[in-house]
Simulated assay, not measured.
Amino acid sequence: MMNQKKIAGEKACEWIKDGMIVGLGTGSTVYYTIEKLGDMVAKGLQITGVATSEETAKQAEKLGIPLKSLNDVTEIDVTIDGADEIDADFQGIKGGGGALLREKMVANASLKNIWVVSEEKLVRNLGEFPLPLEVIPFGWKQIQRELEKDDIETNLRKQSSGEVYVTNNGNYILDIVNQTFTDTAMWQEKLAQIPGVVEHGLFLDYVDMIICGKANGEIELIKK
């Protein structure tokens, strides 16, 4: 079977031009984008990357892609990132890789956002994939209890070792499970009002184009 992630990730490089500032996402699909960009930089492409995670920064540096911090750029020409789910209205869930806060900040600074995915990420309704909340460690249990009052079930994310997962920003992640997110605007408002929730993984009205790799080797471009 064709590697859907690889073909989608590499296809996105066609939208990268000389002189661009490029947001570099995090995850298993955009990994291939960054690998391909590394080849293009080695052959003379001149770009500056803005990484959304320490993992992505390490990969880019190893490949010789020049990087700047988000503080050092005024805007980003295009960001290429993955997604965990996307519905028909171009609303998505991100944060499976734990980088949702930086990913959203970079997306917000970008003139164009392209998401690279394999076809199973396209869904009718959001929610089969857990919705991550980045929360400060102080009082995280209070946030969990607050959500439980509304029958919202969460799991504290842990590493395979059993240790609590800590984001690049020093925070924890609570994953909302067993929930369908049909009224995404309502959820966005609700979660934003809970003290201690730094960011949530609902990405509403960010993406401009989806590059979807299919099992048969075809690539579908889905534009708004």
Rank of each mutant, 00 (worst) to 15 (best):
Asp81Pro: 02
Asn155Phe: 06
Leu45Cys: 01
Asp81Val: 06
Lys104Asp: 05
Ile34Val: 15
Met40Glu: 15
Leu111Trp: 04
Lys158Gln: 10
Phe181Val: 05
Tyr32Cys: 11
Glu119Gly: 06
Phe90Ser: 09
Ser161Arg: 04
Ile93Leu: 10
Ile219Asp: 07
Gln188Arg: 09
Thr56Pro: 00
Glu163Thr: 04
Gln179Met: 15
Ile34Leu: 10
Ala57Lys: 07
Arg145Thr: 11
Ile76Asp: 04
Val207Ile: 13
Val198Ile: 15
Phe138Ala: 14
Leu126Gly: 06
Ser28Leu: 06
Phe90Glu: 10
Leu24Asp: 06
Ile143Met: 11
Lys214Gln: 15
Val116Asn: 02
Leu191Gly: 03
Asn71Ser: 14
Ile219Thr: 11
Gly139Glu: 13
Asp39Val: 12
Asp151Glu: 02
Glu163Asp: 13
Asn169Lys: 02
Ser160Cys: 00
Asp87Phe: 09
Ser69Met: 06
Asn216Glu: 14
Thr167Lys: 12
Glu189Arg: 14
Thr154Gln: 05
Phe129Asn: 04
Val135Gln: 02
Lys58Asn: 04
Leu147Ile: 13
Gly19Ala: 09
Asp81Gly: 05
Gly201Ala: 02
Phe138Val: 15
Pro195Tyr: 10
Thr184His: 05
Ile76Leu: 08
Lys112Asn: 07
Tyr206Ala: 07
Glu35Trp: 01
Gln193Gly: 10
Glu35Asp: 12
Glu148Asp: 11
Asp84Asn: 12
Leu204Thr: 04
Leu100Cys: 07
Asp151Pro: 00
Glu54Asn: 08
Gly49Arg: 03
Asn169Ser: 09
Asn169Ile: 01
Asn155Tyr: 07
Ser161Tyr: 03
Ile219Arg: 13
Gly98Lys: 01
Ala60Tyr: 08
Val116Pro: 02
Tyr32Lys: 12
Thr79Lys: 01
Thr180Tyr: 09
Thr29Gln: 10
Val73Cys: 01
Leu202Glu: 10
Leu204Ser: 02
Pro130Asn: 05
Arg124Pro: 00
Met40Thr: 05
Val117Gln: 02
Ala83Val: 02
Asn125Val: 13
Gly127Glu: 12
Lys141Asn: 07
Lys223Arg: 14
Lys68Cys: 12
Thr29Trp: 08
Asn178Lys: 13
Ile16Arg: 06
Thr33Met: 06
Gly95Ile: 06
Met2Ser: 12
Tyr32Trp: 15
Lys224Ile: 11
Leu70Phe: 07
Lys5Arg: 12
Lys104Arg: 13
Glu218Gln: 15
Glu199Asp: 13
Thr182Ile: 15
Asn168Glu: 14
Gly19Asn: 05
Gly196Cys: 13
Met186Gln: 12
Glu148Tyr: 07
Gly92Val: 02
Gln59Ser: 00
Asp77Cys: 05
Ser110Arg: 03
Met40Ile: 09
Ile143Ser: 09
Gly82Phe: 03
Glu119Met: 10
Gly38Cys: 11
Ile152Gly: 00
Val50His: 04
Thr182Asn: 14
Val166Asp: 03
Ala99Gly: 09
Val78Ile: 15
Cys13Gly: 06
